[in-house]
Structure formats: structure tokens, C-alpha cells
Nucleic acid binder design. Structure first.
Lengths: 224, 224
DNA sequence: GGCGACCCTAAACCTCGGTATGATCCCGCC
DNA sequence: GGCGGGATCATACCGAGGTTTAGGGTCGCC
């Protein structure tokens, strides 16, 4: 506890263990960005193509992706769409030498953090990266909470899920009993199980969990 | 009840009573856009300057604003910022003859719906307007619900607000009583008043209202 | 001074929520 | 066949929630 080097508490907070990924087919650009981010102590991984990047497995820390809109085989915009389709939500910062406005609009609409025109000021890139990392950190925090909740919810039996939905909808035990055709006492049993399994310390607690889980009028299974 | 004309249910839904506002210093552009929107039966109001637009009082229906990034006195981006500062959240669609990427990025980051380069296809503008109107409709719906809730919440006495916060946090009546130093029976009374005044039909109901209202750990009053 | 709020409390009473004990039934699996 | 999990239910008991009735007090305002 004494000789412990202080792991930078960092007023910049968002730094921590964050990683910046760079995809660009120009070696000199990769080199320059690598140096830029290293200079402020940020982990960097560079790639020459989207394909190369996809080989690499993503670490479980806040991160962001910087890519040129003109990639070797795939356009940056298409790659952005690919990632979204694959449910990979890493924040993206675009760079471009000769981009146009429609491209910019499309990228931003699709959720890009920023769109920088080359040459850009180092500070602009650093600002964009800070914003992107922060966005990813926030997203990860939310996702973590949600997945933990979903794991708990998964332990409920079908009957318990059904009862939970009705309980959080505000129905009384007797109403639930009548609605699904069982005895009130049985509803109470289920209810007790639900509270225990979900780790809810109170009804309001459970209601908030249900909100996050989208347990409600939501019809099961994707329709249309 | 018999001779009632059906007020167009409209499969296009978003149309209804929507209004499109156009600000441009070029008379021919105003004219062209006016015709375009009229042709599909959309209400339009045109203005030659931002100032002129501000004189006009905004109707209480879904609407959107179309403006050139180059306005007479004020830049379109600055005007966008002005509106945000004045808490006017009408969706904005930008047009530009010679805009650049940084402008586009700034506009999109500030929440613009779209950014069209002149000349644009009529259909692109119509699509953008449809999206903008829909966004405004959704925002208005949410705002309406929230303001109604706030009106109810405003009828609560300070004590009732305090108790509501604790109730929705999941505290038991006896805990609340101990925490604020009153008798449990009094807490029950307050609780009854809260449910009635807020129009909550169940505790889960009240919890959801509290969520929307941000009633919780939120410290009172703006700090900093 | 009186009227109306807000806030507090007590007693009585009822409903609702929740747990424990004990038991039955069905089903899938080793 | 037996074992475990899921679902069901009864009885009994207790604590929490909620209303009514009937008060009490302190403000501020007309």
C-alpha cells in the first residue's frame, strides 16, 4: 500500500484505460496519429484497412474509432453502416481530405462524433477523441447495468415474468390472480420469488428495473 | 352526431396541421419553396430574415424551420444557437449554396435535422421536412405529458414533495416517519394526498411519474 | 379576529402484501 | 422409479398500507 504508484486519477477522467483505433491506408497518417495520441498517454492501435481492424478483437474498455472516409475497399460510410448492423457501437470520428457535405450529413446522422477535414489541428482531433471516449464510457456504463438486469430477468420463469409485468403495471394481487386465473396466494408466492431473484429491495425498485428492461405492453418477439 | 364530416384520419399522420417556416433573403427561393410545400398541402410561412421570423408568434402545432446558412445579418448557425438559448426547439433544416464541412458538422451537432446543398432535389427537401415535422411532433407529445405532470406536481405542498421523493425511493412509511421526524400516520396522510393530487392509480404509477419529473436524488435549484 | 392553507397526531378499522408450513400435481431427466 | 423444478393451493399469521373521524397547532392574509 506504500510504494504504489498513483494510477493517474486524471482530471481528464475519460482517459483511464481508453483505446483509440485508427484506420487509414496512409502510413504517414497512421504514424502521425499514433504519435499524437501517445504523446498524451493514450493507448493507440493502428490499422491499414477496415478488414485488418475487424480481425482485431475489441477490448472491453472505452474506445473510439478514427477513420478516413475514403478507405481502400470499403467507404468509411459503408463501414460505419456495417458496424451498426453488426451491433458494434464504437463512436466514430471521420477524417477526410476531399469530402463533401452530403457525406458529412450522412455520417453525422448515423451517429458520428465528428468529421474533421484534413489538415486539422491536433487539438481539434484530441477534443473529438475526448468527446468520443466519454460518449463510449457512458454507453458502456448503461449497457453494463442493463445486461446485469437482463441476466437477473433471465432467471425468472415464464410465469414469474408474466406476474412481474402485471405487478409493475400497478395491478393488485387479487386482480392479477383473476386475470390469469390462479389463486391470490399463488400470485404472492410468485411475487416473492420475483423480488428475491431480481434483487429488488422495494416495489419502486422493481418498477424501475421493469422500465429499463422494457417490461410492459411490449409484445413478445419481433413483428413485421 | 350524424352529419359530422370525417376530419382526415390521414395515413400520412404527420401532416395534420403542421407548418413549415422558411427564412431566406432570396425572394425566388421563398417563392419556390412556398409552391413546393403548398403542392403537397402543407401550410407554409415565409420570411426574408431571422428578425422577421421572430416577430411572428409560433403556432402550437408541429412545425419546422428551413433556413439558409447565410442569412442577411445573422449567420444561420448563430441563429440556431440563439433559438436554442431562447429555449425554442423547432427542428431546423439548413440549405446552403456554398457551405463547408465544419459548418455542416457544427449544425448537425447542434441538432439540425438535415443540411441540404443547393440545388437540391424537391424530394430530398420533402423527406427532410417530413422527418423534421415528425421529430417535432414527438417532442411536443413528450413535452405535453411532462408539463401536465409538472402542473400536478406543482399543487403538492413542500412536505408532500418531500414524502413523494422518499416513497418513490422505496422507503417504508415508518422509515419516512423516522427520517423526517413525524408520526407514521402523518406520512400515510401525506401519501394519500399525493396519490390523489397526482392522479396516480397505483404506486408503480407514481414511481413512473417521479422518474419523468426527475424527482429523486436531484438536488434542488441550479448550482454552479 | 377570523378564515383558510398547511402540518401534525390519535384511535379505530379495514385491506393488501408477504411469509411460513405443508401439501399436491406435472414434467423432464438421470 | 426417483429426484428436482415449476406451478398450484390452503391455512394461519403478521406487518404494511390506507381511510375515516376527530382533533390540535401555526401561519399569513383579508
Amino acid at each position: 500500500m506504500t510504494g504504489r504508484s498513483v494510477p493517474p486519477p486524471d482530471s481528464v477522467a475519460s482517459a483511464e484505460e481508453a483505446v483509440v483505433f485508427v484506420i487509414d491506408d496512409d502510413e504517414s497518417v497512421r504514424q502521425a496519429l499514433r504519435n499524437l495520441f501517445r504523446s498524451i498517454g493514450l493507448r493507440v492501435e493502428v490499422f491499414g484497412s477496415a478488414h485488418e481492424f475487424l480481425q482485431h478483437k475489441l477490448p472491453n474498455v472505452p474506445s473510439c474509432l478514427i477513420l478516413d472516409i475514403r478507405l481502400p475497399r470499403l467507404s468509411g460510410l459503408d463501414f460505419q453502416a456495417e458496424l451498426a448492423k453488426a451491433d458494434i457501437h464504437i463512436p466514430i470520428i471521420f477524417m477526410t481530405g476531399h469530402g463533401d457535405i452530403p457525406m458529412t450529413v450522412r455520417a453525422m446522422k448515423a451517429g458520428a462524433v465528428d468529421f474533421l477535414t484534413k489538415p486539422f489541428r491536433d487539438q481539434d482531433m484530441l477534443d473529438a477523441v475526448a468527446a468520443a471516449i466519454e460518449r463510449d464510457r457512458a454507453r458502456r456504463d448503461e449497457a453494463k447495468v442493463l445486461s446485469e438486469l437482463q441476466a437477473l430477468f433471465a432467471t425468472l420463469t415464464p410465469r414469474e415474468r408474466q406476474v412481474m409485468k402485471l405487478v409493475t403495471a400497478g395491478r393488485m394481487n387479487k386482480q392479477i390472480a383473476a386475470e390469469i386465473g390462479i389463486a391470490e396466494i399463488t400470485v404472492k408466492i410468485h411475487r416473492g420469488h420475483i423480488m428475491r431473484k431480481m434483487g429488488a429491495k422495494s416495489l419502486p425498485d422493481l418498477v424501475r428495473m421493469a422500465e429499463l428492461l422494457g417490461v410492459g405492453p411490449a409484445s413478445e418477439g419481433p413483428q413485421t
